[in-house]
């Protein structure tokens, strides 16, 4: 983290309600270009909701979110364009089952970025090689293992050439032996300088590549800091308790 690096995501005092349920209670965070942020916390703590407000899959009712120079408000004229700056990887992969791997990856570049089919497929092939499964290009998602599907999902998110990658518990739905192949791809991506927000409980991943970590509980950020600070010297009791639970497993 250098002093002059620009702030790419700025979140100030964001609140979110689902009906009467107060899901986010004043969350603030600033992310600089190239940073890898790990967000963790118990289920229902608002961490997924928070990451989904960044590309406005969820809207927020109070506070300010600025992504890559554009403020997310109700009158965003071109929300599709803002979503092109962010790629998202979901817990349940959410690949399109009726399209081949290649079609999954090239759909958005062809339809939204208006690339030619040839260009989109060339870049898709490069991405598939990067995530290690070029030979699966013409299969359907249902024919792949969970780990392979999640790697396709990462390639698909990267295909629109986003500035920011959002990961919403990318390894939680995977069998243990497939987690590593997905984490390896994410570590490679982190080292290449991509700005990443990752909701995960994979503390090995956090230790390896995270620049900062945030602990969420009950819709608030309880504590944030470098992995060293969080792991070695957590200030809050709740952080300590939660970490001891997931680390002893």
């Amino acid at each position: 983290m250098t002093e002059e690096s620009e702030i790419i995501i700025s979140v100030q005092d964001v609140h979110k309600w689902y009906g009467d349920y107060h899901a986010l209670k004043g969350v603030s965070m600033e992310v600089k270009k190239g940073e890898v942020i790990v967000i963790f916390g118990p289920s229902g703590s608002g961490k997924s909701t928070f990451i989904r407000t960044i590309n406005r899959l969820e809207d927020h009712q109070r506070g300010q979110i600025v992504v890559h120079g554009t403020e997310l408000t109700h009158d965003i004229r071109n929300i599709e364009a803002i979503r092109m700056d962010t790629g998202m990887v979901f817990q349940q992969f959410n690949l399109f089952p009726h399209l081949t791997v290649m079609q999954n990856i090239t759909l958005s570049p062809i339809q939204v970025r208006k690339w030619t089919k040839e260009k989109a497929e060339k870049i898709a092939m490069q991405l598939l090689e990067r995530v290690g499964i070029p030979e699966q290009a013409h299969k359907y998602p249902g024919q792949l293992s969970g780990g392979q599907q999640q790697r396709v999902a990462i390639a698909r998110a990267l295909a629109v050439q986003p500035k920011i990658m959002l990961f919403d518990e990318p390894t939680s739905a995977l069998d243990p032996e497939m987690i590593k192949e997905v984490l390896d791809v994410m570590i490679e991506l982190a080292k290449s300088g991509m700005t990443m927000l990752v909701v995960t409980h994979e503390m090995g991943f956090a230790r390896a590549v995270a620049d900062r970590m945030f602990f969420f509980d009950e819709g608030q950020i309880v504590e944030g800091g470098t992995p060293e600070e969080i792991f070695k010297n957590p200030k809050e009791e709740r952080t300590k308790a939660f970490l001891s639970q997931i680390l002893t497993h």
Binding site: N55, E80, R83, N94, F96, L107, S108, A157
Partner: peptide, 17 residues
């Protein structure tokens, strides 16, 4: 599933697409 809509929106596709 809702996830199909979300994945499509996250990729920048508009409602019609």
């Amino acid at each position: 599933p809702r996830g199909q809509f979300e994945a499509a929106y996250a990729l920048g596709l508009n409602g019609v697409q």
